[in-house]
C-alpha cells in the first residue's frame, strides 16, 4: 500500500489499510499452475474443434447457398419491427482474418438527434487500424455508442468501450447493462440503454416513467457469440423497469434499479 496520492478521496489511506487487513486473513492456496495449464489446453482443444466445425459449416454454406439461390427467386425485403423500435441492421464487413466484423446494434433519432450503437469484433492484430496505438490485447470486442455524432466516452481514448476477449465465444464477456450518455456519466440528457445479453435473450423492454415502452432487439456480431440490444431514452424521461425476454416472449429478467 502506498501513501495517499494527490486527488484521493478522504479516507483512502484508511480504506487501503482496511482492505489489506481483509486479505491478510486469507492466505492463498499454492498456485495450481499445472491444473490451470491443463484446463487451458483442454479449452484450446475445444476451441480448435469448434473452429474446425465452424469452418466446415462455412464451406458447406459456401457450396450450398449458391445452389439454393440459383434454384429460388430473389429473397423478400427484410421487414422492420412492427413496434417501431430501433432498427437493427447486420452488415458484416469481413474479409479473411484481416478485417474487423462490425454490426449496427441499433440506430434512430431521439430528441431530434441521431443516435447509433455499433459493435465490432477484432479477431487478431492484423484487424486493428494501423494508425491507432495498440490496445491491451486481441481479440477485442468494442461497443461504440454515438449520440449526435459524438462518441460517448471518447475522452478515454480510441479503445474506450473495448474489452479483450478469449475468442469469438468467450463466455466470460458480457452480461452487463449500462446507461451511456454524453452528460453526467449517463445519468442525464439523452441516453442509450445497452444490455450485453446471452444467447437466450431475444429482446428487451425499457418502461419509462410516462408509461411508454421502448423495445430493443438483440443483435449478434456475426461469427461470434457477442450480443446486445439497445434503446434510446429521451432526455426528459427516466426508467421505471427493464425486462428481458426470450424468443417465446417469456420474461427472463426484471430490473428496477435503473433510472
Amino acid at each position: 500500500m502506498t501513501a495517499e496520492q494527490d486527488g484521493d478521496e478522504p479516507g483512502a489511506v484508511r480504506l487501503r489499510a482496511a482492505l489489506a487487513r481483509s486479505v491478510a486473513a486469507r492466505p492463498a492456496s499454492p498456485a495450481p499452475v499445472e491444473r490451470i495449464v491443463a484446463a487451458g489446453r483442454a479449452r484450446r482443444r475445444r476451441r480448435r474443434l469448434a473452429m474446425a466445425a465452424t469452418a466446415a459449416c462455412v464451406v458447406a454454406a459456401a457450396v450450398t447457398v449458391p445452389l439454393l439461390r440459383s434454384a429460388q427467386p430473389a429473397p423478400s425485403v427484410r421487414q422492420m419491427p412492427a413496434d417501431g423500435t430501433p432498427s437493427a441492421t447486420a452488415k458484416p464487413t469481413r474479409t479473411p482474418a484481416t478485417e474487423p466484423v462490425t454490426v449496427t446494434a441499433g440506430h434512430g433519432t431521439v430528441d431530434g438527434t441521431a443516435w447509433s450503437l455499433t459493435m465490432a469484433y477484432y479477431p487478431d492484430e492484423s484487424a486493428l487500424p494501423a494508425d491507432l496505438p495498440p490496445p491491451d490485447g486481441v481479440p477485442l470486442v468494442c461497443q461504440r455508442p454515438v449520440i449526435g455524432g459524438v462518441l460517448v466516452d471518447h475522452q478515454a481514448g480510441p479503445w474506450a468501450g473495448c474489452d479483450p476477449v478469449g475468442g469469438p465465444d468467450d463466455s466470460s464477456f458480457g452480461g452487463e447493462m449500462a446507461l451511456r450518455g454524453l452528460h453526467d456519466k449517463g445519468a442525464s440528457g439523452t441516453r442509450l440503454f445497452v444490455s450485453n445479453t446471452g444467447p437466450d435473450v431475444s429482446y428487451g423492454v425499457v418502461r419509462l416513467d410516462d408509461g411508454g415502452d421502448l423495445t430493443g432487439h438483440a443483435v449478434t456480431i456475426p461469427g461470434t457469440s457477442y450480443r446486445a440490444w439497445v434503446v434510446a431514452v429521451p432526455a426528459a424521461r427516466s426508467i421505471v423497469s427493464v425486462d428481458e425476454y426470450d424468443s417465446g416472449r417469456h420474461r427472463l429478467s426484471h430490473s428496477t434499479e435503473w433510472r
Partner: peptide
Amino acid sequence: RVYTHWHRVRPDTAEQYVRRALVNANRS
C-alpha cells in the same frame, strides 16, 4: 481462458490484460 491466447499477449501488458480479463469474468 487467458492461456488459450497467451502467445498473443505482449509481456509488457500481460498484467493489465489478465487484470482486465479477471474484471470481465467477474462482471459476467
